[in-house]
Amino acid sequence: MEGKLLRIRNLHASVEGKEILKGVNLEINAGEVHAIMGPNGAGKSTLSSVLTGREKFVVTEGEIEFNGKNLLDLPPEDRAREGIFMSFQYPVEIPGISTVNFLKTAVNEIRKYHGLPPYPAGDFLKMIRQKMELTGIDNKLLNRSLNEGFSGGEKKKNEIFQMAVLEPKLAILDETDSGLDIDALRTVAGGVNKLKRPDNATIVITHYQRLLDYIVPDVVHVLYDGRIVKTAGKELVAELEKKGYDWIKEEVKREL
């Protein structure tokens, strides 16, 4: 039990009556980076949606324990306050709300949950500036409406910047590499690596090897047809890149 940040047991989940996750088991310790790979439609994004509490995904069986708490009991905002963060594959544009005000509200709502007073205004800006530097964010982004008119790269960078500000215990990067050119990919990965600490963990959900060249995982899982069918070390990434997913599908079929 101890040291386990996240423990998923026999997780089944469906969307609109269709079962997508069919018994996922996963354990993550603080300090680790896990990669979850797999072909399209395997259930990767469903897993991140279930972890963050998206309402249209219904958990039909199993349990998720996060930091000793039953995660499935909590609404999305409380999961975030407990320390779960997801970098969205498609960050939402919200007109009229500046990035800085959004972050201030988020930070203070999280502090309130933990019984802390609001962040002192002067210190807040100092902290923000520090995190901007850390994640390579342009000053101008702060006062612009959240994600509005941002390029794909700016949106993803902004996600990592938010992660830096909110300091989650568990960060889930959902296809963060999609739509990024190589320079943006490096910046984003660099930001993630700088935020790595012994007391937090990261799940990298991705199709491809390229992000994992920069964010090196401790454990690699293959999700296929709603289950984790293979777990290995980082060498699995190269193997998947070389051989694709078909051999895993064959392996699964043989086992059945």
Partner: peptide, 22 residues
């Protein structure tokens, strides 16, 4: 959902979005 996933409660998120809209 995006706002809630950042720790902002439903009511506050609603206020922010209406304010942003205006």
């Amino acid at each position: 959902f995006y706002l809630r996933s950042r720790g902002i409660g439903r009511e506050e998120a609603k206020m922010m979005m209406m304010f942003g809209f205006a």
